[in-house]
C-alpha cells in the first residue's frame, strides 16, 4: 500500500511537472505524497490556487495580511520584510535557487503560514505555492 502511494505520487508529479529531477522536484514530490496520503482524491498541484494563496488578504495578522505584503505584489519583484530588509523575488525565474533547500522551505512555510494565516499550510497549499512561483 505504501508503495502504491509513492507510485501514485510519482505519477502525479510526472504529470504535472517537467520530468526533470532536482532538489525542487524532490521537495514537490514530498508534498505530493503527503497530499495524497491526506486525501486520496488529490489530483495534482495547481498554479492558479497558488496564485490565490500568494495574493489573498487574511485576517490573522494586521501587519502581515498576505504573503504579498512581504514578498511584494509581483513575485518577479523584490519584497521587503516589516523590518525593512529586502527579500529576493519569489519567482524561480528571478531567483533560481528558490525552493531548493528542503529545510529552508519548511522553516519558512512553518513561520509565514502561521504569521499570515494563523495556521500551518497544508501540503497542497505548499505545493500549489511552489508550482505557481515556478511557472512565472
Amino acid at each position: 500500500m505504501k508503495t502504491g502511494t509513492v507510485l501514485a505520487a510519482l505519477c502525479v508529479v510526472g504529470l504535472t511537472m517537467p520530468a526533470m529531477a532536482g532538489p525542487r522536484e524532490d521537495i514537490l514530490q514530498g508534498y505530493a505524497s503527503a497530499a495524497k496520503s491526506a486525501d486520496a482524491g488529490f489530483t495534482g498541484f495547481d498554479a492558479a490556487r497558488g496564485k490565490t494563496l500568494y495574493g489573498q488578504q487574511n485576517t490573522a495578522s494586521a501587519e502581515s495580511p498576505s504573503c504579498a505584503s512581504c514578498h511584494s505584489a509581483s513575485p518577479l519583484e523584490p519584497g521587503k520584510t516589516r523590518a525593512g530588509k529586502i527579500i529576493d523575488p519569489m519567482a524561480v525565474s528571478a531567483t533560481p535557487d528558490r525552493y531548493t533547500d528542503a529545510a529552508k522551505v519548511e522553516k519558512w512555510f512553518g513561520r509565514n503560514c502561521n504569521t499570515v494565516l494563523g495556521r500551518d499550510c497544508t501540503a497542497v497549499e505548499k505545493g500549489d505555492f511552489i508550482t505557481y512561483l515556478s511557472s512565472l
Partner: peptide, 11 residues
C-alpha cells in the same frame, strides 16, 4: 520566537 513582534520566527 513563535510570537516575535507579531511574527512567527520560531527555530
Amino acid at each position: 520566537l513563535d510570537d516575535h513582534f507579531g511574527e512567527d520566527a520560531s527555530l
